[in-house]
Design a protein around this nucleic acid. Sequence first.
RNA 1: GCGGGCGUCGCCAAGUGGUUAAGGCAGCGGCUUGUGGCGCCGCUAUUCGGGGGUUCGAAUCCCCUCGCUCGCCCCA
Length: 420
Amino acid sequence: MEKLQGLRGMVDLLPDQITLWQKIEETARRHFKQAAISEIRTPLLEATELFSRGVGESTDVVSKEMYSFLDKGERNCTLRPEGTASVVRAAIQHGLISQGPQRLWYSGPMFRYERPQAGRQRQFHQIGVEFLGFVEPRSDIEAIQLAWDLLKDTQVKNLTLELNSLGDSSDRKMYRQTLIKWLEGHSQQLDEDSQHRLKTNPLRILDSKHPSTKALLQEAPILKNSLSRESLERFEKVQIGLDELGIPYTVNPFLVRGLDYYSHTAFEITTTELGAQATICGGGRYDDLIKQLGGPSTPAIGWAIGMERLALLIAQFAEKKTHREQKIYVVNRGESAESFALMVTRNLRLKENIVEIDLSGASFSKQLKRADRSGARWAIIIGDSEVQQGKVILKDLRSGLEKIAKEERINLDTLLKRFV
RNA sequence: GCGGGCGUCGCCAAGUGGUUAAGGCAGCGGCUUGUGGCGCCGCUAUUCGGGGGUUCGAAUCCCCUCGCUCGCCCCA
């Protein structure tokens, strides 16, 4: 028989990695709760149109990275490649937006058909926040602050916040023309990708990593010069707000982000510790998206953190702890002892203890060895003679071999009183 | 979609053309028919990702294929 394998880019999270993930999730939940943000859960599967209209037809995500298929009713479906479009769709569909501003968070798997590499999988996980119905620059500041503090709280080091303003749609339209015009004059010096993008998505050329293109762009007209007075003032307010909160950032005029819906503030939180995939949080304002998806014209801002990347980063700093947990391991052997042990186990669990029972029937020596390796703090030993006396042996596994006397025979009542 | 690296037991790995494919960890059994961290003994790959070829003979050479991995592109 041939061995079955998971699909490429679909990774399993094994038990010893889960603790780390749970820690991240707990930290995030705590921050969201304190910031009065509500959770929202939307389906993994959506109509393809949601993303082609929302994220943008010409983006890489939509044009080449979606898991799309026809279902049995001939509907065009897509596994969500990102979270914002779904959240916005749900908010429109259920009239959330007309009930006033919404502060929402989500977490879950996203799907993008790309070649996997370090920090990039086909199924990956994001934790994200969406503020719907907020115009004020202060909402940008709060959103960024939230992401920054959350990441800091996970003990991650060496983070950089990069910031830019894309202006509103008319700013961008104007800049687009200026940029196209200028680039066309220098098209010979552009790399192949960028030449192609000149026709499809010229703004994306800005954050090209191609060395010669990068050099060329130093001379190119910059986005900032096309921003209206209002857009510029808005961007300044965001920066001042971050200064006041003491959150360090650098303005990166080439930061444009790959999704069409962004406007005004765009930002990324990056690290140098992760190899090529340096962005662990990305986000920005999307004032036109909700209207574009058929909702009332509503300004909004949001961001998403890549769980895999964050987990990878944290794992670098985390040291393995080997201390014993508050677990009780029930060693048992013999006919009457085995059923008695199940009863004891159950009663201890009813008192909210963590209890593992040995089901092997192996020798006491074997079972104790397993108890030790399992990292349990206590062992309870039950043999047939204990059952007859109505007692069990309670042993402190911490005490070590020398203090082998550190065990006691106690009756069940005393035991249950001990472990409340 | 395009490049580079790699694929020997659950994990780490030696072996680079010659009769039986090292070793370590983990696992299992025993020394110890009722007591844990150490030690000792034993067991665990008819087979080297898969297929084809070269050869008297291949894990070792060639071809194809699959997978993993890093990078490009792009993004979280």
